[in-house]
């Protein structure tokens, strides 16, 4: 195994043009703003954020389903952002995606066998049109996700959400990808099904050594699967680090607020916990606030937060955080906030 990351994303920026009709002025929405991260081989990186934080846009830009406005995405030595057409299709087997909604990610007019076989057929891996061999491959794939040959000649509408997500996973692993992008892959499922799918994903990872880019809004789920975590807010990564450090002693007030929203199974501990609900909504990316994007909702906001964008600084225990509290303010640099009572700024 080499030390170079499998996926290397540098200064990724994705913008959408809004309006631009005859009379409406064109407006630019920056959904992802200068995001950098990497995923090592066999590792699970979770990207976490609330709705509108740009996490799904990051997934789509990495998959080149969206054209990034700036930045580069390197996968296993290939610069995906420089590829297009046939050259891009040729590297697609290395990265596959599972989508959030299993009800719309499977073509309702196709049999399960055809859906799972499609990646193999499209990439000419159907072994010279040998239908029986392809059928066997599809069956093996379905067995790997806990389904079987009996499900091959059925249509998607005959399956439950969890089963559909298994089919989507079977399709994604058909090409033996090195990286799987899971965009809220378990969010649409109920909790018991979520656990089954998460176990399946963990199982597949140990067997194949794939890396996961796990997009989620649910820190409770992320805690179980992630090796490293990146927290996004308004199109930027505000904190990254090993999962143990993030869940043990996070450094960014936003991460702290997210963590305090994860329910605690033990009721006594849940009651003892100081819950910090976040005030207000995530700001509109059309009119981003000045300085730190989080300052309007931050319980520790200072003057400097309204003026200057904080830079990423390294944190003890690994990772980095973009917060002025690390360098100035009432707390000393790097001191964990969790133990303190918030003082008015």
């Amino acid at each position: 195994m080499s030390d170079r990351p499998l996926l290397e994303v540098r200064d990724l920026t994705v913008q959408f043009q809004l309006g631009g009709g005859l009379f409406a002025p064109k407006r630019t929405l920056t959904a992802v703003n200068g995001v950098s991260f990497e995923v090592m081989r066999g590792e699970t990186l979770a990207i976490v954020g609330e709705s509108g934080s740009g996490k799904s846009t990051i997934a789509r830009a990495v998959m080149r389903l969206l054209e990034p406005a700036a930045g580069t995405v390197h996968l296993d030595g290939d610069n995906l952002t420089a590829l297009s057409g046939a050259a891009l299709r040729a590297v697609r087997p290395k990265l596959q995606m599972v989508f959030q909604d299993p009800y719309s990610s499977l073509d309702p007019s196709k049999l399960i066998a055809d859906i799972v076989a499609e990646p193999l057929v499209v990439h000419g891996r159907a072994r010279g049109g040998d239908a029986a061999a392809l059928d066997r491959t599809v069956q093996t794939l379905l067995e790997q996700v806990g389904l079987g040959a009996v499900h091959m000649n059925r249509y998607p509408y005959e399956f439950s959400g969890g089963q559909r997500q298994r089919i989507a996973i079977a399709r994604a692993i058909a090409l033996e990808p090195k990286l799987m992008v899971l965009d809220e892959a378990v969010s649409a499922l109920d909790v018991s099904t979520q656990n089954q799918i998460l176990n399946l994903l963990e199982d597949l990872r140990t067997r194949t050594g794939m890396a996961y880019l796990f997009i989620s809004h649910d820190l409770g789920v992320v805690q179980h699967v992630a090796d490293r975590v990146a927290i996004t807010y308004l199109g930027r990564i505000v904190e990254t680090g090993p999962a143990a450090r993030i869940f043990g002693s996070c450094a960014h007030p936003y991460t702290q607020a997210l963590l305090s929203a994860v329910p605690e199974p033990n009721p006594r501990r849940q009651r003892a916990r100081r819950h910090q609900p976040l005030a207000g909504e995530i700001p509109s990316p059309l009119a981003p606030p000045s300085g730190c994007p989080f300052h309007a909702r931050c319980p520790h906001a200072m003057d400097v937060c309204r003026r200057e964008m904080p830079a990423h600084t390294a944190v003890d225990g690994g990772g980095s955080v973009a917060c002025h509290l690390q360098t100035e303010g009432p707390r000393l640099a790097g001191k964990p906030l969790a133990a303190d009572t918030p003082t008015p700024p």
Partner: peptide, 26 residues
């Protein structure tokens, strides 16, 4: 707009294939 068209794209299907195999039947 359906996700399955996006999924076909992510698999590496060409635009012609997507139109013939996924859009037309639907």
């Amino acid at each position: 707009q359906e996700t399955y068209v996006e999924a076909a794209q992510s698999i590496g299907c060409t635009r012609g294939w997507i139109i013939r195999k996924h859009v037309l039947p639907n």
